[in-house]
Computed example of a mutant assay.
Amino acid sequence: MRLRDRFSNFLYRQAEKRGWLDDYKRSIRYGGRYVNDENILESSDVYELLQDISNQMMLAEIVVVDESGNEMKNDPAIRIMSNPNNYLTQSEYIKLMTNTYLLQGEVYPVLDSNQLHLAANVYTELDDRLIEHYKIGGIEIPSFMIRHIKNIGTNHLKGVGILELGKSTLEGVMSAEKVLTDKYSKGGLLAYLLKLDAHINPQNAAQSKLIKAVLDQLEAIDESRSVKMIPLGKGYSIDTMKSAIEDEKILAYLNVYKKDLGKFLGINVDTYIALTKSDLEKAMMYLHNKAVKPIMKNFEDHLSLLFFGKNSGKRIKFKINVLDFVTYSTKTNIGYNIVRTGITSPDNVADMLGFPKQNTPETQAIYISNDLSKIGEKKATDDSLKGGDDNDKEKGNEDV
């Protein structure tokens, strides 16, 4: 590991001298996307699904384990992951990485000395030896500093995200939502139609004056409680013009196609919503097994290679406490079951309660408290129950 670190630091110093790190850091700093037709986060339903998935990832504990699965508490990778850089916390970094992965289908974590970043505008290609090369602004980044995490589809070089998978569905949903939002933010697009029996004549001063007066009156209505009296001459009438936007049809469209977007995130929205209403723990476990676990495994593989290389037995692991998804009453039941099992562990108690004996040295000994401190062998305990020494026996006989 020390040799690899020295080599990495050497290449890092050479890169600094050549100046390409400035381009790379500039790409990270200004790597944001402009809000345009891909601004899916404006859709509240999709945003909620993304939040549910990325929040589970954010709440996971990140640890380092050795080849035997034992946690390594003081590994440098833990310190870097807990404080990845100067502008993101660990929680923000994991959440951003997850959302980018889901939306764009790929994300690029970069290990820059003792800081971890997410690079943007990265160009990748395979050479003749099938080695992937990474470039930012035409400058190549050493492969040991960066990983290409892909939401893999059928392309070995590029991941697929919801922005690509659900593009046509997204465009329809976003447009429908915008139409409804604009309609009600602008007062329902209420319009009026002035009907005339005669043709409108621009040269008719009286007619023009009447039309202008009607328009002025209508435009002056600034709230729903306002009432305007508009006197009209013979042959004139004002009717409300029905809005071309039909709410029911748009809502029916959204009810169908919004659910389709969940499939691109790996879950069935109908199933998920039904579970959230009936059993929140089951809903969280459904989300965890269907969407979160595959992401965790992919992140673990790439981050382990980024930090330790392919010849190391150490791995980055995401640990999620499943008990976080259960209610307090369920945790109480779990505790009750553990205590009940503990009560029946000693053979003499198991026999007394009608459970089968385990006949092991541990179950034949007597323990006290939950730290299982042995207070005596079964034989010694049996002897003490028989009365101890001879004086006690004689005293016992006298009492009888």
Results as ranks from 00 to 15, higher is better:
H288G: 02
E92Q: 11
Y253W: 05
D75F: 11
E92I: 06
I152L: 15
K25S: 11
N201F: 09
P202G: 07
T381A: 12
K374R: 08
Y134T: 11
E38V: 09
V64W: 01
L50N: 07
L353S: 00
L96G: 10
G309M: 00
M241L: 15
S8V: 11
Y184I: 00
G266L: 03
V339F: 13
L280W: 01
S304T: 04
K259W: 09
K212V: 13
N121Y: 06
V256L: 10
P346E: 03
D301V: 13
N85Q: 04
D239G: 04
D112I: 03
P202H: 09
Q364D: 07
T341F: 11
S185C: 03
S304R: 02
N74H: 12
V46G: 05
I28M: 05
E171A: 08
P361D: 10
T271Y: 01
A60V: 06
A198E: 15
G354E: 00
V292H: 11
S8R: 15
R18F: 09
L170V: 04
P76K: 05
N333W: 03
N204Y: 09
E132L: 01
I136P: 03
A350W: 00
Y30D: 02
A291M: 06
S373M: 15
N255E: 13
I320T: 12
Y30R: 09
I320Q: 09
Y192G: 02
L130S: 13
G172I: 00
L96K: 13
N337L: 06
I273W: 06
P231V: 06
I200P: 14
L194K: 01
Y272G: 07
Y336W: 15
S243C: 07
I162H: 03
I78G: 02
V173I: 02
D127A: 08
D37V: 01
G138R: 01
N83H: 06
L280G: 00
R18P: 07
L11A: 05
T100K: 12
G161V: 10
V63A: 08
E223T: 08
E38G: 12
N36P: 02
G266F: 01
Y101R: 10
L49K: 10
A77V: 03
G235W: 13
H199D: 14
A198Y: 12
G69I: 03
N333L: 02
L287R: 08
A120W: 09
D347C: 00
I62A: 04
I94S: 02
K386S: 12
R225S: 12
G159R: 14
Q51D: 12
R26D: 12
N86D: 15
L111V: 05
I334C: 03
I245R: 05
G335Y: 15
N155D: 14
Q104H: 15
K319G: 08
K25E: 08
V326A: 00
L126Y: 12
Q115R: 13
I40H: 01
L116S: 06
H156D: 13
G32F: 09
D222L: 14
L287G: 03
N298W: 01
K195G: 05
S345H: 13
L189K: 04
L111S: 10
G235F: 13
K25D: 07
D52G: 05
N121M: 05
R225P: 04
D389H: 02
R340M: 02
N333V: 01
